[in-house]
Nucleic acid binder design. Structure first.
Lengths: 225, 225
DNA sequence: AGCGGATGTTACCGAAATGTCACCGCCGGG
DNA sequence: CCCGGCGGTGACATTTCGGTAACATCCGCT
């Protein structure tokens, strides 16, 4: 599930992206109107979250452009008290709006509701490169090949790795995400899980191409197509 | 198709009821929490539309009560800016929300979408491959053979499986769909129900061809004819 | 009340998932 | 050069999970 987030405030943008990524969404971002349109065309997101005040135009322009070619749900971010803005947003075809400031929890809930309403809710499936992880079925599709069956823990591990594809995810974060606050500090658990997962998804488990080790830090999922 | 509407504002209530009635729905109403629960029990509506602010309690209480015994779609009405409210509503198992003020047209569209999603707007039967499930009569037709009688729970289970034929449906989703928010987490119920259903519909219940297990995840209905 | 089917509970088995332990090899710092 | 930490690996123990059966309850109906 891919979400386009457009905002020119770097703090807000990274907060929003972090929250969405943590929840297993793939996020693509932009900070101005032209690049937003370009990213939209290139990435075909399933949902767009647009700030209204942007350099070089407004979120309305993006919304209009999106609506010309797509019916994906659009959520607008408005400053408090800008009633006319939100009326205009809804007129332009936006599906929901959020008044700043808002909590990440609220954002998540609304985003999910929008996707559900649009019938796009997958129960969760995430993609990176040629990998597609189905969180509900615990299946990993690799290109056209028959899907690989994963266990619960394996798919949780892949979930956070895919959500952070291309970046190293620290050992502690992995432990917490997969096992919760138990097992915190137990590297052995992670060692074994990584080992078992590699047996399933790596061509040559002894020379990992996908699930790579970041010595002394954690692991990283290679994000090439 | 029967819809329960709960709101203490008589103007809004009559507006909503008028719109729904015009569209061919049967509407039952209530203006406070106790009578809402009573009406719910007496009328078994297919959809509930609940205001949050009510005399004698809140829409949350109704939602919780409904979810304890049913999984019908619930739509909550929130005042603008009550972000926390709607997060809580969705947490409690509400399926959608609408921010006041809203247009009757929007309400209709959302209500229809919810009913469609719940598979309730089919006046009759669902089909996949050689299977045809009659939701009214709780009968399952397999090809030309004489129909199999199903119990209420069995047909609910088949309903969601058929609606997602070919895809794995997660254990939690099955539990929620069949038993409502109760029974959540009780895998044994599902085990037994699947077992009993297989006895009825599988050629060789020990080697299921139709209702297949997705280990560690859920079950899947084979969708070929 | 009494009946019969539907549903919920408990228990057991074998298989798969997960956790634990022991040992290997690598590498950098005394 | 040896030591100790770290990651990888395999073997084995423990736990969880799904299938099954037997039995207990519940529920609607006469």
């Amino acid at each position: 599930m891919k979400i386009l987030v457009v905002d020119d405030d770097p703090d807000l943008l990274s907060l929003v992206c972090f929250a969405l990524t943590q929840s297993g969404f793939v996020v693509v971002k932009a900070t101005d109107v032209p690049s937003a349109l370009q990213v939209f065309a290139a990435e075909s997101p399933d949902l767009a979250i647009l700030d209204i005040n942007l350099p070089g135009g407004s979120g309305f322009d993006i919304c209009t452009a999106i609506r010309r070619q797509s019916r994906i749900p659009v959520m607008m971010l408005t400053a408090r008290g800008e009633e006319e803005d939100l009326v205009r947003a809804l007129d332009l075809g936006a599906d929901d709006y959020l008044t700043k400031p808002f909590s990440p929890r609220t954002l998540l809930a609304r985003a999910r509701a929008l996707l559900r309403r649009a019938g796009l809710e997958t129960g969760g499936s995430m993609t990176v490169g040629a990998l597609r992880l189905d969180l509900e079925a615990h299946l990993l599709h690799v290109g056209e090949a028959p899907p690989v069956k994963l266990t619960k823990l394996e798919s949780r591990l892949l979930q956070i790795l895919i959500a952070n594809a291309g970046n190293v995810v620290g050992t502690e974060r992995l432990l917490t995400h997969v096992w919760g606050h138990r097992g915190s500090g137990d590297r052995q658990l992670l060692k074994q899980l990584v080992h078992r997962l590699r047996q399933k998804i790596e061509e040559d488990p002894a020379a990992p191409q996908v699930l790579q080790t970041a010595a002394g830090a954690g692991y990283r999922l290679e994000e090439k197509g």
